[in-house]
Simulated assay, not measured.
Amino acid sequence: MAAPSSSALRTLSLELKSLQEEPVEGFRVKLVNDDLCTWEVAIFGPPETLYQGGYFKAQMRFPQDYPYSPPSIRFLTKVWHPNVYENGDLCISILHPPVDDPQSGEMPCERWNPTQNVRTILLSVISLLNEPNTYSPANVDASVMYRRWKTSEGKDKEYKNIIRKQVAATKVEAEKDGVVVPTTLEAYCIKTQVKAQESAVDMTDFYDDDYDVDDDDDMSDNGEEYEDDDDSGNGES
């Protein structure tokens, strides 16, 4: 495998530094064995979705000519989802090369371009968790279950029960890693932190409005939204 270009390493170094200094809600990143081309990603399930409270780990691998070619993402945590293959590989338009492929049903503008970065990729992945693309699924069975759940307005609980069980299973890994997974919007959304060296400067007015969320969302973080449904669904992956 060809060594990464100096341009790729420089780009990845800057992106990592940016994410460490200004974290984004919903995920955390770190290097695997100090390798700039291999990142471990921890994705938190968004509140008010089936994935609320989930802790999903994945690995991102970057090509030697990044950002001109897209990285790949493979989930290390078991994820039952229409756009995740059995081996954990994620299928999402933003990570597909920008070629004209009419058979895919994707427009070139939906695919990878060098203006994308780790932030935009992972925010797209978080969005995909709650809103799968079922038109060209990687996991057909999950796609069928998801459609059944949506069209029955939640009455068919097989899909929901599988996700709920997988979310519960991730809590062990979160505890092992010493991570407290946010389960409310207030905890999920990160407020911009003023750097210590700037603390002597009165910049309160500038930062106060950054990433604010409404305080009137009185949400429970004890999972009461997901009542004890019949867990007899046999689609456990």
Rank of each mutant, 00 (worst) to 15 (best):
V140P: 13
E198L: 13
L185H: 12
K150P: 09
Q197I: 06
R164M: 06
D141E: 15
E198P: 02
P182N: 09
W149F: 14
R148A: 15
G154F: 14
D202Q: 03
K195F: 06
A169R: 07
V144F: 10
E186S: 13
D177G: 05
I162Y: 03
I162T: 02
D202S: 02
K195V: 01
K176D: 14
D205M: 12
V179F: 07
I162C: 03
Y188C: 06
Y159S: 08
K160Y: 14
A187L: 07
V194R: 01
E153M: 14
R147F: 07
P137C: 06
E175Q: 12
V180Q: 15
K155L: 15
D205T: 08
K160H: 13
D141S: 14
V179M: 13
A174T: 00
V179K: 11
E173W: 01
Q166K: 01
Q166E: 01
V181E: 04
R164G: 00
S199R: 00
A142K: 04
A187M: 09
S143W: 08
K155V: 15
S136L: 07
A174C: 05
A138T: 11
M203C: 09
Q197F: 15
R164F: 05
R147N: 15
K150F: 10
Y188H: 11
D177L: 13
S136R: 06
T151R: 14
K150N: 02
A196V: 03
A196F: 10
P182I: 10
A142T: 11
I162N: 01
K157W: 08
A138I: 10
K165I: 08
P182M: 07
P137L: 06
I163D: 01
R148D: 09
F206S: 09
K191N: 11
E186G: 13
Y146I: 07
E173F: 02
G178S: 10
D202T: 01
A196S: 09
R147P: 08
A142F: 05
S143D: 06
E158R: 10
K176F: 10
Y188G: 05
K165Q: 06
K165L: 00
S152A: 04
S152Y: 05
K176H: 15
V180W: 01
A142I: 03
T170W: 03
K165C: 05
P137R: 05
T192R: 09
I162L: 01
V167C: 00
A168S: 07
T170E: 03
K157D: 05
D205C: 08
Y135I: 13
V172M: 00
Q166C: 01
A169Q: 04
T170Q: 08
